[in-house]
Structure formats: C-alpha cells, structure tokens
Amino acid sequence: MSKRIGILVYPRFQVLDLVATTVFELANIITGKALYQTTLLSEQGGNVISSSGVPVASEAFGQQDFDTVLVSGWMEPVRSTPGFNDFLRAASAASRRTASLCTGAFLLGQAGLLDGRRVTTHWWQARELQHAFPKARVEEDRIFIKDGKIWSSAGMTACIDLCLALVEEDHGAELSRQIARKMVVYHRRSGGQSQFSALLELEPKSDRIQQALTYAKENLRKALSVDELADAAHLSRRQFSRSFRLETGQSPARAIEVLRVEAARAMIESGNHSIDIVARESGFADPERMRRAFVRAYGQPPQAIRRAAREAAAA
C-alpha cells in the first residue's frame, strides 16, 4: 500500500524543497512499485507562486490521512495563517511523521509542534529559531534531526538527506543508496554530521588545488607530505605551496589538520570506535595529537564531543 506524502506549500516557499518529491519518485521507479504517493497542498489550492516566481499546482487543504507531512521552507520570512496552523496541527496528529525542510521549522513552531523537541534548520536562521521558540532545543550544526515523530532538516539540499533517511527507515538502506546514486548525491550525510564542510570552507579556486584536497580527504591515513600533495596537484613543491596559500589562506599542514579533525569528529559522533582507532583512521600520529587538534578547532577534547553526542542521542 502506498504511503501518502503531503507537502505543504504557501506563497514564496523555497522551490528547491520540491526536490524531496524526486526521492520518493525514484523509490517508486527503482522498485517498480507504488511505494509513495506525493501531493502538494496549500490553504487555498490552485497555483502557488514559489520564491523563484515559478508557480506550482496544489490541492486545497482537506483530508488529513497522510503517512508523512512535509513542510517546505522559505527564502524570506513568512507568517503562517490560522488556517495553515490548524491544518498542520491536525495533519501532524493524524500522521506517522511530520518533517520540516529548511526554514519550514518556523512553521512547525508557529503551529506549536516544537515545544520540548530537538530541531534544526538552516544555520543562518538557527539562532532566530531558538529565540522565537525558546521551548525548543535548536541544534544549529546538524544535517537533520529525528525527535520522535518530528523530523527537521538543515538548509537547502539537506532536504535530500532527510528524505533519503525517511526512505531508509521505511524500506532499508540499500534502496536509499540506490536513490542517492541516481540523484548523484553522497549517500548519505548522517543526521549528526556538521552542516559545514572543510572542503567548502577552504574554497580552492583552481582544479589543481581542489584535486590535491580531494586526494588528501581520501587518504587521511597517510602522512600526506607537501611533496605528495604537490604530485597530486601536478605542480612543483614551490608552485603548490604558494598557490595553496593564495587560494585557501592556509598552509597545507593546517588544511590537512582541518580535514582530519572533521573526519575524526564524524567518526566519534556516529560510531563506537575507540579514541585510538579514530586517531589512527583519521591520520593523527597518536591520540594526544588529535586531542590538541580538537582543542584548537572546537575548544574541547574528543571525549567531550563524544559525551555530548551520546547525551543528544539519549535525549
């Protein structure tokens, strides 16, 4: 039996959130079964103008028998109407899951669905969300969060990660992986992963420096000398060192440490590996060097981050 997915839209909603429908569409195509049926819903029905000016057709609020309710986000702040809030509350109560995409979390809050819940949103709006809904627990550096029947995702393309997780919960990891491959996206960022990426933060300008950084990220267990990175970039050592600092504002050694810390934190937050194993797999020579790098990057040692991750999971 198909699971009915209701996606709530409104004037000026973020049109990128409609990529969520592709995840469910591909689940149907890959399996050859009607696993999901998606419906766009709005208060008045008819065409709804998105943030980009592109209109989309929608059905008016009515029946509430949805397996999952998704609330789209916005580019500019919107205020939901009493009718929107009433429908969202009723539909959420009747559904198995309710999820916000990006800044759609504000609309969950306006409907009174965030009290006592862990929630995330686009990092740019996270503190405003916490201020607006102080009874919620906003975690601004998460890709997505599941708290009971309430799910929420970070900004923009993080809606794909959330929807892949929904499919995985319903039909297993293998189908979710196949969908990710079809969509040419990474399968899949874990909910606890940071919204930020070291590679994005470094922002290399040339393909050669990008190639060296990609090589480094894929080979963190190696020593990764400047000569090895220069070879990966097909540059001389002198050219590489000069170009690297000009493009990223950092030395190669500092950038590699940032990549290692990011990889180590992901392992610590998403698994039960010992600190010794994490240090080895992420390329630190020993746990003490990793501890010092964590303190420089996050102001706290790996053990504190592990405790925080476990407490969040328990909550």
Rank of each mutant, 00 (worst) to 15 (best):
D17C: 10
N272V: 06
W74M: 11
R177W: 13
A308Q: 10
E174K: 07
I160L: 06
A309S: 13
I268Y: 03
D170R: 14
R4I: 05
R242M: 04
R177A: 09
D147W: 02
Q125S: 02
V23E: 04
G6T: 01
G155I: 01
R177C: 07
G112S: 03
V9C: 01
S50D: 08
G148N: 04
V19L: 05
E174D: 15
R310E: 04
K217Q: 11
E228A: 00
A230V: 04
V184R: 08
A223M: 09
A198M: 14
N219L: 01
C102E: 07
H187A: 03
G83N: 10
F144M: 02
E257I: 02
A180Y: 04
Y186T: 15
I5G: 04
K149E: 15
V295L: 07
I275Y: 10
A279H: 00
Q239V: 03
F240K: 02
E139A: 05
A90P: 09
D147C: 08
L107N: 11
D67F: 07
R238E: 14
E218H: 13
A314H: 11
A111Y: 11
A27Y: 13
E76D: 03
S152P: 09
L18C: 01
A279Y: 05
G249V: 09
W123C: 15
F240P: 01
A34S: 15
S251G: 00
L199R: 03
A173C: 15
D286E: 13
S58K: 08
F133K: 00
V48R: 06
T22Q: 09
Q110D: 12
V71M: 07
E288C: 05
R177Q: 15
Q37E: 01
